[in-house]
């Protein structure tokens, strides 16, 4: 079984972002960039399936700038076999490449690579769209299982437990299918130094987004990016009685 894992390069989740003073976007120079956390979970899951003998090959794909090679190398150090970089100069967080374009590009790659399964993040932590996996699955006409917290592969099918608002839902999907990951699916490993060295020699294919037959004009024009309304920290109360008094008589919420 061949697994394809689309991954995105995003501002590291620990970084407090800065908004450009002209409100045109988010500062990205000299900012730590990382693999989107949900995509790390997707790679980990694919690697575990390979270790369990269920998968034979793992391909990681990213659409982004030349520099996004670094996350493909990280993915390969975690255990992916090869990488594909689809290069573009367009912005990938806001006001450039959009989920629908990403899904169309991935569809074209998938028709070529013919994986049996796509595992990807449920959400990129920059645009917070939570769309690409569902869109890809619709374009391919494949089943989808989003927000997965458990995946079991059995006989050409995947049993997937999904984290939904009401609790946990279980689906059985026929492969090939698109599965998107939630936080509790697994805990991604750290790449060891020898594996980081080995990953440098793994194959990395370079393609150009402009060579795909996809219209590259965004449907959503980014008008501005602003600070959210500031919330002023209030006061520190000294004990429970004071807290209760404030809640009763000042905030009037109890």
């Amino acid at each position: 079984m061949k697994i394809l894992v689309p991954v995105k390069r995003v501002v590291d989740y620990n970084v407090k972002i800065r908004i450009k003073s002209d409100q045109s976007g988010v500062e990205d120079s000299n900012v730590k960039m990382s693999l989107n956390p949900f995509d790390e979970i997707a790679i980990e899951e694919a690697v575990r399936l390979k270790e369990a003998g269920k998968a034979s090959e793992i391909i990681v794909v990213t659409i982004g700038p030349e520099k996004a090679q670094d996350i493909l190398r990280t993915a390969m150090a975690m255990g992916a076999d090869r990488g594909v970089l689809v290069s573009t100069d367009l912005k990938i967080d806001l006001g450039g490449i959009e989920p629908l374009m990403v899904a169309k590009c991935l569809k074209a790659l998938i028709e070529n690579e013919k994986p049996d399964m796509v595992i990807m993040g449920k959400q990129a932590i920059d645009d917070d769209s939570n769309q690409t996996g569902q869109m890809l699955s619709a374009l391919l006409g494949w089943p989808q299982a989003t927000f997965a917290s458990n995946i079991e592969i059995d006989n050409g099918q995947a049993n997937v437990t999904r984290e939904v608002d009401g609790g946990l839902e279980t689906l059985k999907v026929a492969l090939p299918a698109v599965v998107t990951t939630d936080l509790r699916l697994n805990e991604p490993r750290y790449a060891s130094l020898p594996n980081i060295m080995k990953a440098k020699k793994k194959p990395l294919d370079n393609k150009q987004l402009s060579d795909f037959n996809i219209k590259l004009t965004p449907r959503l024009k980014l008008v501005s990016v602003e600070e959210p309304p500031k919330r002023e920290g209030g006061e520190i109360v000294s004990n429970v009685d004071e807290l209760l008094d404030k809640l009763k008589n000042e905030a009037k919420v109890i």
């Binding site: 501002v11 989740y13 407090k16 972002i17 908004i19 988010v26 967080d93 806001l94 932590i125 920059d126 645009d127 917070d128 980014l222 008008v223 501005s224 990016v225 602003e226 600070e227 959210p228």
Partner: peptide, 8 residues
């Protein structure tokens, strides 16, 4: 966007 750190 960005986990509520910005409004686009």
């Amino acid at each position: 966007v960005y986990g509520g750190q910005a409004i686009a």
